[in-house]
């Protein structure tokens, strides 16, 4: 997300010099997140919603559901679609218009973490095999951008899913030939959590703030589940990592994932 930003040399030097002294510019430790807060059910018109702050980064995720046909190759599971919008109010560098590569990457990485982490039991979102399934839209709105959208968006999406109710009773009239049953809680199966690290010179930092992200050489996001299994990864930016650095990040991501998961569980 460091797109076309002009980086002030002063800021760059300040970040580099601080790291040489072993410090981050906001005083955090290398392995320390900013304050993370999660609030669920903040939007009543959505089936589920969550607002997540990581420091000043502020994102809102909402779940909407409808009923439709399954994909022909997966007749017995529901459909999940994830979209993330970098709306212009969140940053002077975000522009309105069709989604650009940044937001497409963000959507797809968030989607991958939830899907591969089996966050939702998609088979329970099948109404009648081959005919009718629940279609779930996860929309993430970025409200205020101060870095690390991957973790904020993934966490908001997970929290919104976990707080969602499948609105079965609302659709009963529309589908009289099917037994939709009563409203039921979203069938959550697992809680995958994403943790993102950047490399600045030779230093690896978790949860980059915007200023850090802007000067970062490489980024790695790792989604892990409660058993510490790796479910999704995405490397970004044009720098490289050594194998040892990646091993280090994967191990730390598991640890950080557990910390964030504790905060998530407390918010539900």
């Amino acid at each position: 997300m460091s797109g076309n930003k002009v980086v002030s040399e002063i800021l760059r030097d300040y970040i580099y010099n601080s790291l040489e002294e072993g410090k981050r510019i906001d005083g955090r430790g290398y392995d320390e997140y900013r304050k993370v807060s999660i609030e669920t059910n903040v939007i009543q018109s959505a089936e589920g919603s969550a607002r997540v702050h990581i420091g000043n980064t502020d994102v809102l995720a909402g779940i909407k559901m409808t009923i439709g046909s399954p994909f022909p190759d997966t007749p017995n599971v529901g459909v999940m679609t994830t979209n993330a919008e970098l709306i212009p109010m969140a940053s002077p560098t975000f522009e309105s218009g069709p989604p650009d590569a940044e937001s497409i990457e963000l959507s797809r990485v968030v989607d991958r973490g939830l899907r591969e982490g089996h966050a939702v039991d998609m088979e329970k979102l099948c109404i009648k095999e081959g005919e009718l399934v629940w279609i779930m839209f996860i929309d993430v709105h970025i409200l205020d951008y101060d870095g690390n959208l991957f973790d904020a968006a993934a966490l908001a999406a997970m929290a919104a899913l976990a707080s969602a109710t499948v609105p079965a009773s609302q659709f009963a009239d529309q589908y009289p030939d099917y037994d939709l049953g009563e409203d039921f809680p979203m069938p959550i199966n697992n809680y995958p959590i994403m943790s993102t690290f950047v490399k600045i010179k030779d230093v690896i930092l978790v949860d980059p703030a915007l200023d850090e992200e802007t000067v970062a050489d490489a980024r790695l996001s790792v989604s892990t589940d409660p058993e510490g299994r790796v479910r999704a990864m995405q490397k970004g930016l044009n720098g490289g990592f050594s194998y040892a650095e990646i091993q280090d990040i994967v191990r730390k991501a598991t640890e950080k994932g557990n910390e964030l998961r504790d905060i998530l569980m407390k918010s539900l």
Binding site: R231, Q234, I246
Partner: peptide
């Protein structure tokens, strides 16, 4: 020895 592209999806232990 630099890794410049890395993605993963699925289920693996470390």
């Amino acid at each position: 020895g630099e890794i410049v592209l890395l993605q993963m999806d699925g289920d693996m232990t470390q």
